Amino acid sequence: MGTTIFSQINHARTADEVCAQIETLILEGVLRVGDKLPGERDLSEQLGISRPILREALKDLEARELLVTRHGGGTFVADVIGDVFSKTMLELIADHPKATSDYLEYRREVEAIAAAYAARRATDDDRALLTEIILRMEEAHKKEDFRDEAAIDVEFHQAICEAAHNLILLHTLRSCYRLLTNGTFFSRSLVYRAPGARTLLLKQHRAIYEAIMEADPEAAAAAAAAHMEFVEESKREAEKVGAWQTVSKLRRQMRNAD
């Protein structure tokens, strides 16, 4: 890790203190799933502890499934988020369209709360990160890079829930975004590839961003809710057009056969 996020332990140099610091970094979302910890020598120096104490702490965290060690590859943050639903439930969801509508309805409400909190609580570093992300989003939009734009979309929403500084919101929404990126509920290409949708989505993201920058929780919540309503409506329209195209193609095939 290029940036030092660990602080020296100046009192009671024990494995428990090391565990507590790493636990907090994971809980606050500073250390994310898959992040690699510095090597043993570097980490012990950053924490100001002996390597035996560090080994004891890492062993304890690994036993509690917060960290995972890959032979010859280092130590990483384990998948502490996990899946919201079991494999069986995911299969049921995939077969029932109502689940997608409920997912988007849930996100509409929760995203609005997260945006409002972010407008109230965002720090200078939070705002700087959001600014960096929105600029990259605009650059991807100019290049008409759908994949990059969609990936930055999720990153933008994750940064907002981090700026909300609410641990439950943070990890709940991260689970929701995982389901989105995995395509559990719907393909985002349905929305992004609809005529004019990319430009409208960018405008909506900037509205959320500007409300947070201006510390206006009401405007931020309204912008986030409007954005999710647009996503839901765009998805419905895209699926409707897709169904029409399927029927039209079948009709044409039948006429040609005659």
Rank of each mutant, 00 (worst) to 15 (best):
N166S: 07
T69Y: 11
G82R: 03
A226Q: 10
D216S: 13
P38E: 11
P52W: 12
A78Q: 05
A63K: 13
A243P: 02
I212W: 08
L129C: 09
L43H: 07
A151W: 04
A257C: 04
C19K: 07
M213Q: 12
R55N: 10
L61R: 06
H157L: 06
L170F: 04
A112D: 00
L130I: 11
M137T: 00
Y103N: 00
R206Y: 07
C176V: 09
C176W: 09
S248Y: 07
S187K: 08
A164Y: 00
T75L: 00
Q46T: 01
Y103P: 01
F85W: 14
A223G: 00
T172I: 08
A20S: 08
F6V: 08
W244P: 08
A222N: 10
L92V: 13
L47Y: 01
I113L: 11
L37M: 14
L179N: 01
L179I: 08
E17S: 03
A112Y: 12
A128E: 01
E155P: 05
N166L: 10
V33M: 10
E162L: 14
G242Q: 08
A163E: 06
L201E: 03
L202W: 06
I212Y: 10
E149M: 15
A194S: 09
L67Q: 05
L43R: 07
A140Q: 14
D125L: 01
R64F: 06
R55Y: 01
R51I: 01
E149H: 11
E91P: 13
Y192W: 15
A118T: 05
V68R: 15
C161I: 04
D124H: 11
Q158A: 07
E40A: 13
E62Y: 03
L104T: 07
E132R: 15
G74T: 00
S175A: 15
F230Q: 06
A57H: 11
N166I: 03
R55L: 03
D42M: 03
A159K: 09
E232W: 15
D35H: 06
E105H: 14
E17V: 08
S50V: 11
A194E: 05
H71R: 15
L180S: 00
N256S: 11
V231Q: 07
R70V: 10
I53V: 15
K240V: 05
Q253W: 02
R198E: 12
Y103I: 02
E109N: 12
A78N: 10
G74V: 10
W244L: 15
L31F: 02
R236K: 15
D16I: 12
A20E: 12
R178F: 07
K143Q: 12
R64P: 03
I5L: 14
Y103K: 02
P52Y: 03
P97S: 08
F186L: 04
E162K: 15
H11T: 14
E109T: 02
D95A: 15
R136C: 07
I168Y: 13
E91L: 02
P195Q: 06
R70E: 12
L170W: 06
A220H: 04
E62C: 10
L250P: 04
A150Q: 08
P217F: 09
